[in-house]
Amino acid sequence: MEVNLGNDLINLRNQAPLVHNITNFVVMNFTANALLSVGASPVMAHAVEEVAEMVSHAGALVINIGTLSGKWIEGMEIAMARADALHIPIILDPVGAGATSFRNESLQRLLSVASPTIIRGNASEIMSLAGQQVQSKGVDSTGFSTDALTAAQSLAKKYACVVSVSGATDVIVGEGKIAYLRNGNEIMTRVTGMGCASSALAGAFSAVQNDPFLAAISAAAMMGVAGDRAYELAQHPGSFQMSFLDQLASLQPHELEERASVEFEYV
């Protein structure tokens, strides 16, 4: 399969798409900085009074359920309905799926409004969303990404979407095909917001790449390669986070192509 990671990055930086995020309090600042660093334009807007209007201007909508409340869910529903009507890509990050009944019920509400373009989460979240029994550990994964392959395939078929599972090996499932990406470093699990940033980048790439499978690959590759390069310069969480943002900004298209480890399987 032909994948042009460098070209996707060039298009993202040239177009600087607006990415509308309805995301959680914990990661708003980091997510916005990650999008700015990679070349996109972030907006964080969750008020029910403006989400429909805001998403109308966006190239993608990112829904992240990390810190839920009733009004936020209502805003997410309104934004998703509007994005769906306008054919704007929707990325759903089911943070902490399976941890509480409130999260599970909220996800079902959101999925009844519109099917996401991409669902991106860790193994536990993806398995829980697919209805599998998972031992919960808050918002952290208790499984490996490859453990969630069957669940990811089930969700991809049910919602006619792409499913991206983050982990030591990122697993991305599309119709009849799977991509495995083997970049990134373990230290990324010790910096809050990395998964959320990955979902935001999936939104950014979806705004410039019409194939959501390829957009999800580009986002995962960008995260992983930037993580590899950042770790070469900073081996502790605080300095790593700053170095990671620098790498998102400085990584060149040809470097992304050269360092990304991507393998395909057809099913």
Results as ranks from 00 to 15, higher is better:
M1Q: 12
V3M: 03
V3T: 11
L5E: 03
L12P: 03
L12W: 05
N14E: 15
N14Q: 14
Q15E: 15
P17N: 04
I22K: 06
N24A: 10
V27W: 01
T31I: 08
A34V: 04
A34L: 02
L36A: 07
L36P: 03
S37R: 00
S37M: 07
G39Y: 04
S41P: 09
P42G: 09
M44Y: 06
H46K: 12
V48C: 12
V48Q: 14
A52M: 03
A52W: 01
E53W: 03
E53S: 09
E53I: 03
M54F: 09
V55Y: 06
S56P: 04
S56E: 11
H57G: 05
G59Q: 05
L61D: 02
L61R: 02
I63Y: 00
I63M: 07
I63R: 00
N64M: 06
I65L: 13
T67V: 14
T67F: 12
S69C: 15
W72Y: 14
W72P: 01
E74Q: 15
I78F: 12
A81L: 15
R82G: 01
L86G: 12
I91S: 13
D93I: 06
V95H: 11
V95T: 06
A99Y: 07
R103C: 14
R103L: 11
E105K: 14
S106W: 02
L110E: 00
V113I: 15
V113N: 00
A114E: 00
P116R: 06
I119L: 09
G121T: 09
S124R: 13
E125W: 10
I126D: 00
S128W: 01
S128N: 12
L129H: 01
L129G: 04
V139A: 15
V139H: 08
V139T: 09
D140W: 08
G143Y: 10
A148K: 13
T150P: 11
A152I: 08
K157M: 13
K158L: 10
A160I: 08
S164M: 07
G167V: 08
A168K: 14
V171P: 03
V171W: 04
V171F: 05
A179K: 00
A179R: 02
R182Y: 06
E186Q: 14
M188K: 02
T189N: 11
G193E: 03
G193N: 05
M194I: 06
G195R: 08
C196P: 10
S198L: 12
L201T: 00
G203R: 02
A204D: 00
A204Y: 01
S206C: 09
S206I: 01
A207W: 00
V208Q: 02
L214K: 07
L214N: 09
I217R: 02
S218V: 05
M223N: 06
G224V: 09
V225H: 13
G227Q: 10
R229A: 15
A230G: 07
A230E: 07
Y231A: 15
L233M: 15
L233G: 11
A234H: 14
A234K: 14
H236C: 13
F244M: 10
L245G: 02
D246N: 11
Q247G: 05
L248S: 02
A249S: 15
A249G: 11
E255M: 14
E257L: 11
R259V: 07
V262H: 05
